[in-house]
Write a protein that binds this DNA or RNA. Structure first.
Lengths: 153, 153
DNA sequence: ATCCAACCTCGACCAAGGTGGAGGTCAAGA
DNA sequence: TCTTGACCTCCACCTTGGTCGAGGTTGGAT
């Protein structure tokens, strides 16, 4: 088990994180990660970049944009331990968004599931025929698709 | 309450669905929706396209690609009532994917939440410092980021 | 019959999130 | 010292999911 140096090369980071080196430079351009340079202009990363990368990739997997991630990471200090206030800021700004996404996913999944079980093939209660309320759940301000049901089932 | 004609123009569909007419043509190119044409080559849509659009937009909101949606819709018959087998196919192909996404979201949210409450600012248990297991949850075949913790907390 | 908003196609362009190659430099082992 | 793989920058290109405008046609109301 070789001891990891504090300064990782881009190749080491790529290998250990599973993130291609091209993407690492791309993230650096976008300000998501940072490196310092050797006298010969090569990038060197602190080990903590691996944590950042894990965070970035996880956030991406759940559908957040790099800009979202950037905004969140920007609220966290780079050089010091995050304070409770730092976390609170990051968490609260995402909580609502994450909850909404979880909700939307549940609704979509449950609809598919219940449709299988409901014997609704009569077209009367089948989800594709009553799908519109997925929209109206967005609030009273967006009932556009409600109109589509006027003609009846 | 004006009775909706069976054949909607692209403008009517755009207005009622909230989907821009440019996107409607785009979706048609991609095979997600279909229309027939008047003798003058203008598109006419059946009302059912509104349901399809609601489905498409909802699936997109939860992060599925248009290709995913296309694949799913392709399994549903256009002209006839979907059978239980039709639904079963669509549902089962998505169930796993949706569950995985819900899971990933839960993990991300719960991490943020617990971090706020846990007083972990010592860097010992804070999620950014133990984030790696979000990756190892992918299975035993992908422990890449585990290596990063060698240097120890 | 005429008018004009709404429609048509096609191709350029946009943003996000990258990949790949050309041409040149660095650094560590033989 | 020399070699060679890893690194550097810059730029062109890719896919997804669209938007926009030019230039031309339709169709419903007057």
């Amino acid at each position: 088990m070789t001891k990891l140096p504090e300064n990782l090369t881009i190749g080491q980071v790529a290998e250990r994180s599973g993130v291609p080196h091209t993407a690492l430079r791309f993230y650096e351009d976008r300000g998501l990660i940072a490196s310092h340079r050797t006298s010969g202009n090569q990038r060197r990363y602190p080990r903590s970049v691996l944590r950042r990368l894990a965070f970035i990739r996880t956030a991406q997997r759940v559908g957040l944009s790099l800009e979202d991630v950037h905004a969140a990471l920007a609220t966290l200090p780079d050089g010091r331990t995050p304070t409770k206030a730092d976390w609170s800021r990051l968490s609260q700004s995402w909580q609502e968004e994450l909850d909404a996404r979880i909700d939307a996913l549940h609704r979509l999944r449950d609809r598919l599931t219940s449709c299988i079980g409901c014997g609704c093939l009569s077209l009367r209660s089948c989800f594709l025929h009553n799908f519109d309320d997925a929209q109206s759940a967005d609030g009273p301000g967006a009932p556009k698709l409600k109109a589509a049901t006027e003609g009846g089932t």
